[in-house]
Nucleic acid binder design. Sequence first.
DNA 1: TAACTTATATAAATATGTGATATAATTCTT
DNA 2: AAGAATTATATCACATATTTATATAAGTTA
Lengths: 150, 150
Amino acid sequence: MEPNTTPNELDVTEFALVFEELTRIIIRLPSIEKLSFTTLSVLHTLSRKSPMRLTELTANEQVTQSGITQLVTRLERDGLVERRPDPTDGRVVLVHITAKGADIIHSRRLDRIAQLSTFMEGLTPEEKETVAAALPALRRLGELGNGMRT
Amino acid sequence: MEPNTTPNELDVTEFALVFEELTRIIIRLPSIEKLSFTTLSVLHTLSRKSPMRLTELTANEQVTQSGITQLVTRLERDGLVERRPDPTDGRVVLVHITAKGADIIHSRRLDRIAQLSTFMEGLTPEEKETVAAALPALRRLGELGNGMRT
DNA sequence: TAACTTATATAAATATGTGATATAATTCTT
DNA sequence: AAGAATTATATCACATATTTATATAAGTTA
């Protein structure tokens, strides 16, 4: 990969690699509850928007409709979500996240924040400032990424 | 004290949330090969360092030693890794990633870079510059995170 | 209203993961 | 240097998860 010669020009490859590395670290942070990747993903999706239809969940996650139905059944058994009918359409099931389910996502998030904080302490004040300055752009990058989802 | 004069303080919570969102998007980028999370994780680990012992892999991934042994057997069957003996210790098996295995990681990385590039195009030049300016600090954050792994 | 479509569920087969245990190679102990 | 303990990997039996194909019920359309 050719490094960009223009000063301060954004090297997307470099960004992707750095991001990959950070993701790798975060994924490997130890956590108490042993929930599968798919389980956490569905819970996380529901923590952003609840309730959701099973079909909607199926579209978001990378498992089949059958897989989602069964996963939701397990989550319901464990009290992390609830199935409720949709008054306007008798076919659909609306999956609501419970307080217990939301707590799991929330506490994991707090763990991550704590870990990230200790890592951040190793940065110089100047480095921290560059990260802080980039936050708005990164947030917008996320919005752009969401908007472009087909 | 005007808010403008206050140095831009880094909000770790905000960083974690933005990072979470970006991760979420990247994970959901469509990809052709349907390999499980664990499979990809092991391949990715090996793409960073190969060969590795099974025990070493077990320590990195979140499955049992038995699980890793079986996963490696499957990967070997699919031609993504190779088992070779360690000349210095007759007990150990060294798992080498093959070109085919490395290609999977590489092509997925290229996909991610391409997608990120299109998202980045939506940023203003100023925004891109803040991201570019933060890259060195983010890279160092990754190094710090790696170093602190217990 | 019959035919089609959509949303979810179920069943059977397959894939994946765990825990307990086995085997072989190495290291430690005396 | 032999026997005991340890380490690295493999295997077996079982549990859990996921897919494919199909079923059922509700809504939509011609």
